[in-house]
C-alpha cells in the first residue's frame, strides 16, 4: 500500500485556539478521498497544511513521499491546490495566466500548450482565453483555475469545494476529469460538505469535526460502523456528528 498522504498527530493552533487536534489522515495513492465536515471543522486548514501554505504547529505530514516541513518545495511541485473562493490575477488574460503558471512551475512551453489545449476543450473555456480574468464570472474563473492546475498534471490534487461555483455541465466535466486522473494513478483529496457529490465521486472518506477525526474508511466500512448497510453518506455523517455532539 503506497500512501500519498500520511499525517501523524497533526496540530494547528492560532494563539490559544486549537484548530486541528492530533489529526491522523491516511490517503492511498490513486484514491479519491473526501474530507467531510461542517463549517469550521478544519477542512480548509488541513488542506492548507498539506499544500505547504501554512506550517503545522506540531505533528508531521508526509505528502507524496516528502515531509511537508522539511521538503515542502519538492512536494509542492507534485501538488495541485484549488482553494475555496479562489482569487486570481484580474488584470491578466486567461492565456497570460496559463503562461504565468507554466513558467512558475517550469512546465516546458510546448507540453504546457498541448495540455492547455486539451483541458480548455474539456472545460469549455476556449472562447474566453483572450479575456481578462477580472471580467469573467465566478464559474468561468473556477474553470480557468482547474485548467491551470491540470496543465501541470501533478500527482496529488487538493481540492477545496471545487464544485461550488460550477454549473451542472462544468461539475460533470470536472468529475470525469478527476475520475480519469485517479484511474491513471493520481490522488485526489476533496474537502466538501456537498455529501451527494462526495458519495458519488469518492471511494474513501474521513469525517472531521472541530479539528478532530471522527471516523474514516470506505462507504461500506462506514455503513458497517453505523450498523445500517443502506445508509447514505449524509446519514452516516449525521450519525457520527450528532453522536459527537451528544457525547
Amino acid at each position: 500500500m503506497i500512501l500519498a498522504i500520511e499525517t501523524n498527530k497533526l496540530c494547528k493552533s492560532y494563539g490559544n485556539y486549537l484548530v486541528i487536534k492530533n489529526l491522523n489522515l491516511r490517503v492511498e495513492k490513486g484514491d479519491i478521498h473526501a474530507l467531510i465536515g461542517s463549517n469550521g471543522a478544519g477542512k480548509t486548514t488541513t488542506l492548507l497544511m498539506l499544500s505547504g501554505i501554512i506550517k503545522p504547529t506540531s505533528g508531521s505530514a508526509i505528502v507524496v513521499g516528502r515531509d511537508m516541513v522539511r521538503q515542502s518545495i519538492e512536494a509542492k511541485r507534485e501538488i495541485g491546490y484549488v482553494p475555496e473562493n479562489p482569487s486570481l490575477y484580474e488584470s491578466l488574460t486567461v492565456s497570460e495566466f496559463f503562461e504565468f503558471v507554466g513558467k512558475l512551475y517550469s512546465v516546458p512551453r510546448d507540453l504546457g500548450k498541448s495540455r492547455i489545449e486539451k483541458y480548455s476543450n474539456l472545460l469549455d473555456i476556449n472562447s474566453i482565453t483572450r479575456k481578462f480574468i477580472g471580467s469573467l464570472s465566478k464559474g468561468e474563473q473556477q474553470r480557468v483555475l482547474i485548467c491551470s492546475i491540470m496543465l501541470r498534471e501533478p500527482q496529488l490534487y487538493l481540492l477545496d469545494e471545487p464544485f461550488f461555483a460550477l454549473d451542472p455541465r462544468g461539475a460533470r466535466t470536472l468529475r470525469e476529469i478527476l475520475e480519469e486522473k485517479a484511474a491513471s494513478g493520481s490522488t485526489i483529496l476533496l474537502a466538501t460538505h456537498q455529501l451527494e457529490v462526495a458519495e458519488r465521486l469518492c471511494n474513501t472518506f474521513t469525517i472531521i469535526e472541530k479539528g478532530r477525526k471522527l471516523v474514516d474508511g470506505t462507504l461500506r466500512e462506514l455503513q458497517e460502523r453505523v450498523g445500517r448497510a443502506s445508509s447514505s453518506l449524509e446519514e452516516i455523517y449525521l450519525h457520527f456528528s450528532e453522536r459527537r455532539g451528544n457525547g
Binding site: 505547504g52 501554505i53 518545495i73 519538492e74 509542492k76 482569487s87 486570481l88 512558475l104 512551475y105
Partner: peptide
C-alpha cells in the same frame, strides 16, 4: 492580497 496562495503553494523558494 487573496491571490497570495498562488505564490505560497508554488514550488518556488
Amino acid at each position: 492580497s487573496k491571490k497570495i496562495w498562488i505564490l505560497k503553494s508554488s514550488n518556488n523558494p
